[in-house]
Simulated scan of single mutants.
Amino acid sequence: MSIEAGKPAGLRERKKLETRIALGWAAIRLTVERGFDAVRVEDIAAEAGVSPRTFNNYFSSKAEAVAARHLDRARMIAEELRARPASEPLWEAVANAVMARFGLTQETRGAGTSDQQWITGLRLMMTEPALQGEFMKAGALAEFELAAAVAERTGTDVERDLYPRLVAGAVWAAITVVTDHWLHADPPVAIVPLLRDALHQLAAGLPVP
């Protein structure tokens, strides 16, 4: 579910989006805390303050709910890119869009979870086969969403031209690599500087170190 760029969302659409986001974060928090197999749809719905029937209106499975934030973040990055000033160079605009929308906050993930607990839980979550498939599916959709925004900004065709898909693919690969590095770094590192550095290297054409 995404809001069409440039058009204000009505109250009903905003409420639906808020419910989707709440369910997605609830699914992630509970999976991090308990493990994927120990979480039921009923648990996710209760955590988000809705009924299981409402959950089923948004997602077909708990795995899809967990992966939803992956896709929704990309859609927000695409919307942010569309909102960047037309005078801003493409790679600068892409970096600013990503940095504006990327990050896990203490508020959304739950104040009672430490950084290390959160990272450990995410590591385990990413090894779950059912989730890996959903993340791959969400990643493909996310990449196309970003490519469409790049195409609009550059006057290219997302279906016919390589350029927007190449840019989106490179950006999404950078996000994936940075996330993996962040999850497994020892000692722990902050994700935002890593992401900023990765996007800077992309903008520079990935010069040899």
Results as ranks from 00 to 15, higher is better:
A168K: 03
A147R: 03
A27S: 13
E80Y: 04
G121C: 11
M125I: 12
V171C: 02
E152N: 10
V66M: 05
W182Y: 15
E79Y: 04
P52Q: 06
D43K: 10
R34G: 11
A198N: 05
F59V: 05
V98A: 05
M76I: 07
A9L: 09
L11G: 02
I3S: 03
T179H: 11
A22W: 02
G155A: 10
E33C: 09
G6E: 09
S60L: 07
E145A: 15
R69K: 15
R75Q: 12
A173C: 11
H181M: 10
F36W: 03
Y58V: 06
I44H: 00
R109M: 15
E134D: 00
E88F: 01
S51T: 15
T54Y: 06
S51D: 09
K7F: 02
M126N: 08
A111I: 07
A26R: 06
L202Y: 08
F102E: 02
D197A: 12
A68R: 01
D37L: 09
N57D: 08
W172M: 12
E79M: 05
L206D: 06
T120G: 12
D43A: 11
A185W: 10
M1D: 10
D157Q: 12
I119V: 14
L131M: 13
V178N: 02
A204Q: 12
T113E: 09
E107F: 09
P209N: 11
G110L: 06
L202K: 07
S51H: 10
M136P: 00
M1E: 12
V192N: 04
L162P: 00
T176F: 14
R20V: 00
T176L: 15
L146W: 00
L124M: 10
A130K: 11
L206F: 12
T176M: 14
V66C: 14
A86D: 14
T108A: 13
L30V: 06
T31R: 04
V171F: 00
P188H: 10
